[in-house]
Design a binder for these strands. Structure first.
Length: 278
DNA sequence: ACACCCTCCTGGAGGC
DNA sequence: TGCCTCCAGGAGGGTG
């Protein structure tokens, strides 16, 4: 599942591929992949525009177009953007049952939106804020300080794990990196968000940045589905300390990693390192 | 304001 | 081998 490091990796790769390309044709095979406007308007309004920039906000890929419009892509669980150069056409993606949107450029290069579980969404809007207005702070941005994290967590009484997954608080963390950061900071996910000591807030702040930066350096984590636009997998899986390691042993203390359910979602912890205290 | 549950989806895993 | 059920999970919605 793409989280911030995976989305950022995609954005960087995509930038080097599609900036300057002009859209020639758009085919929508699964209309519900288009969040807004209608699938027909989406296709009509995309044709003729040129990609001028590719960036990221939270887990959204933001493709800036000229004349001005913004294509925002959220990959959710299994979504992929796949870039195929003109020289490599034709290939099987065009008829794949999980290819939901096909964007062909005037160069005959093609960008495919592929999504087995169909949770991913594309939006074409006049202002990216129409989609991203509610997102919280960027955890790798300068504004994300220990003081801010303390304020975010301290002003409400919620379970820590769901709070960290809440995109309106911090934008970009998902299940993998939240579990990894909590392990690194030695904090239990069932703690109340406003129960952390200043030292714990500091540790969590550092852990979030370290985990995301490390994953970014490894071009993301591929557990099953994640691939960049060229089909390359990430290399961060071997760095995971708890996520997906239930029953294996904590690299810090040697005790077994446990999987618990919090808010209907799995959490991976070392109960020895991450003590649940009030 | 928060917890909890449901929905969306499909492939893969596990049970028998 | 094959059929069935269960499950993962980000986000948005409804409800208590």
């Amino acid at each position: 599942m793409p989280e911030l490091p995976e989305v950022e990796t995609i954005v960087r790769k995509l930038s080097s591929r599609i900036i300057g390309l002009q859209v020639a044709a758009v085919v929508v095979n699964w209309e519900r992949s288009i969040a807004r406007p209608s699938a027909q308007e989406f296709a009509e309004q995309l044709v003729g525009r040129t990609v001028s920039a590719v960036s990221r906000r939270g887990k959204y890929i933001v493709i800036t177009l000229a004349p001005e419009k913004y294509l925002l892509v959220h990959l959710r669980m299994t979504g992929r953007l796949i870039f195929v150069p003109a020289a490599e056409q034709p290939q099987l993606l065009a008829t794949d049952r999980h290819t939901h949107v096909i964007c062909t450029f005037t160069t005959h290069d093609t960008l495919y939106f592929h999504d087995t579980r169909k949770f991913g969404r594309l939006s074409l809007v006049d202002d990216p804020a129409q989609v991203t207005f509610a997102l919280g702070v960027e955890p790798l941005g300068a504004a994300f300080t220990p003081v801010l994290l303390g304020a975010i967590l301290g002003k409400r009484h919620r379970l820590l794990k769901p709070a960290l997954l809440d995109q309106t608080l911090i934008a970009g963390l998902g299940n993998i990196y939240t579990d990894e950061a909590l392990w690194l900071a030695r904090i239990h996910p069932l703690r109340a968000s406003n129960s952390l000591t200043p030292d714990e807030v500091q540790a969590l702040h550092s852990a979030i940045i370290e985990v995301l930066t490390c994953a970014l350096g490894n071009h993301g984590t591929t557990l099953r589905d994640y691939r960049d636009p060229d089909g390359q997998a990430g290399a961060n899986e071997s760095c995971l300390q708890v996520y997906g390691r239930e029953g294996q042993f904590c690299n810090r203390c040697g005790k077994p990693i446990e999987r618990i359910i919090i808010a209907q979602r799995s959490s991976h912890i070392c109960a020895h390192c991450q003590v649940l205290r009030r």
